[in-house]
Design a protein around this nucleic acid. Structure first.
Lengths: 225, 225
DNA sequence: CTCGCTAGGTACCAAAGCGTACCGATTCTC
DNA sequence: GAGAATCGGTACGCTTTGGTACCTAGCGAG
């Protein structure tokens, strides 16, 4: 299971690999070998909207494997307090992979974007298993690089795409992982994720609505196309 | 040895961890245990300016450990042909770490930014050693996360910082790794790295020069402050 | 020395986005 | 049901940046 890319998106010039071709969408935890799973105290968690799972500059106690439908955002806060999203993680990834791979603190915050369930594993346990199970390690390392590629793409989009394009890309990324076309979020929240003004989001959503790409009610956006 | 961050930069609101506190600057290859080094066919290479070391969507044959003074840029090209830098690697990192960690192809191009020497190791060898030497693995994984954090920072800067701030950050990043205050590059080249117009770079450099932060001759910029 | 190429300085207009503000509409709370 | 809080629509002026273009200075080749 690899990270999103490719699949033409409207006429906006935004591309992202589709997840449509992925036969069965499940947490990567499910692809761990049984003997590895036995060594992990996996705990089911219900994650609420906007719940903070991890904080930048701290080391988390657990890492989370979102189940299909649950989406988590990784954000970074600047010196002046602005918060911007750098990447999102759904069932295809691991929230806290940074801490599994490296002994340092997290470089970003992790916030629940779309509520849902996740499996949670103590960080230390996963690190131990990753250390002596090559299969698990390969899966985690690959997941890490997939995320790195995602963040790289975000860096570029932030540079050369306009607001409407970035909004479209963001919505599709969430849609693929949330597995539904409606997401509950306010323009204000979106503006924080995209790092723009709230009013700018309102205008961009309005334009996309005129184009028939989305529709929206109060605090909800539905993707049509 | 950890990745750049923190250290106030002029009055531009740009921060980056300083490398000034790093006692001895050397390739991370030098921190590998001897028994690991013996298993690697390390080859010294002289890297020329603008040399392409790796291409996106391909799997490299070697990975490179730049020696102090040598700097490599990782860039990504968009669907419309625009090339933008997502991160830089110097003596503190590994060019091609993505391919060591994951079996997939590179997500970016690698281009020599400041010529110099680098040690080069066959990818397959390094993967093998990383697989059964925990120390090497830890070093590489940490280096990978450091790079991920760098790219995350790039994503944010691309969103909320203006051209002059991004230019300052870029110059400092290169300076730290190149270990000299003068770098040979044209405004045109810089504009590709930063993903802006060449004329925009000219103006930004001019303003920084007025502020006494840099000076420049033809195809060269010197950092003063 | 001259031609030609490359680097860089400058300018003008248009588009995108920001800061700010105001106000209406919906929802929540008591 | 009334007041408060939240959400979102809209507007205006300003800054940054992009697109484009033209011109000059330095450098190298013949």
């Amino acid at each position: 299971m690899s990270f999103p890319n490719v699949v033409a998106v409207h006429n906006l010039g935004v591309w992202e690999k589709g997840m449509a071709d992925i036969a069965r969408q499940q947490s990567i935890l499910d692809s761990f070998p049984p003997q590895a799973l036995r060594r992990l105290s996996i705990e089911e968690q219900s994650l609420a909207n906007h719940e903070a799972l991890m904080k930048a500059n701290e080391r988390p106690e657990w890492v989370y494997f979102p189940q299909p439908g649950c989406v988590v955002s990784l954000t970074r806060t600047t010196e002046v307090g602005t918060t911007v999203e750098v990447g999102i993680v759904g069932f295809e990834g691991v929230v806290g992979i940074q801490s599994v791979m490296s002994p340092g603190p997290m470089g970003s915050d992790a916030v629940v974007q779309v509520s849902g369930n996740a499996s949670r594993v103590p960080l230390s346990e996963l690190r131990a298993v990753s250390d002596d199970n090559a299969t698990v390690r390969e899966i985690l390392q690959t997941s890490c690089i997939d995320f790195l590629n995602q963040v790289s793409q975000t860096a570029i989009c932030n540079r050369i795409h306009n607001l409407e394009q970035r909004l479209a890309k963001w919505l599709l990324g969430v849609r693929d992982r949330a597995e539904r076309d409606s997401v509950d979020l306010t323009h204000d929240f979106l503006s924080n994720m995209l790092g723009v003004r709230r009013a700018g989001v309102t205008v961009a959503v309005g334009e996309m609505e005129l184009d028939g790409l989305v529709k929206h009610d109060r605090a909800r956006i539905t993707i049509l196309d």
